[in-house]
Amino acid sequence: MTIDIREAYRRTLDDFGALVHRIRPEQWENKTPCVDWDVRALVNHVVGENRWAPELLAGRNVADLGDALDGDLLGDDPLKAFDTSAVAAAQAAGDERSLTCVVHLSFGDVRGEEYITELFADALIHTWDLARAIGADERLDPELVEACAAWFARAEEGYRQAGVIGEQQPVASGTDSQTRLLASWGRRS
């Protein structure tokens, strides 16, 4: 990967956040490409991931937090909830030790660099999901797409076996990188 994963993650959070700030009141219930999620549920998911990041990068595990980060994390001010969570996640990921620490995930331990990469990829794909749901420009940063695609080429089989991504979608030869990446995550762009 040619871009520092911490920088890629921060930039992706910035892009997702810019879209969050464009959500009109009537759009929070719009359907997203994520099955069973409307815009509010999608943003809540990303806020949840953001709130887990500092905890897990600090060495805590799922059992330590119990259900503290379950349910509605957006409250009455979804924009503030996102902004606060994104700052905390980016700061935690930006720490020099974040790349080498051990992160205790529900399925096992991984290096911090892998965890941050997973967070980055999830946020990048959900940036497209949110853009589609609110009718915004769906073009993702090409450098971030390339970084995600390089990592996902190695990780896709595990994600597919775990059932956490949709079925691979067909793409025509000569299709652009973003469309190929989204198709590998089960998205039809």
Rank of each mutant, 00 (worst) to 15 (best):
M1L: 06
I3S: 09
R11E: 04
D14W: 07
D15P: 01
F16V: 06
R22F: 13
I23C: 05
P25S: 11
P25K: 08
W28R: 05
E29Q: 10
K31R: 15
C34K: 02
D36H: 10
W37G: 01
D38Q: 12
H45E: 03
V46P: 00
E49L: 07
A58C: 05
G66V: 09
L69Q: 12
D77Q: 12
A81R: 01
A81G: 14
F82E: 00
T84K: 08
A90G: 06
A92T: 08
G94Q: 05
R97C: 05
R97V: 07
T100K: 15
C101W: 03
V102F: 04
L105A: 13
D109Y: 05
Y115V: 02
T117S: 12
E118A: 09
L119R: 06
A121V: 11
A123D: 01
A123V: 15
L124K: 02
I134T: 04
G135C: 08
G135F: 11
A136K: 04
P142M: 07
P142D: 12
L144Q: 07
C148E: 04
R154S: 10
R154H: 11
A155D: 15
G158R: 14
Y159S: 02
A162Q: 10
A162W: 06
G163Q: 13
V164D: 14
G166N: 12
P170F: 14
L181S: 00
A183R: 03
G186Q: 04
R187M: 04
R187K: 11
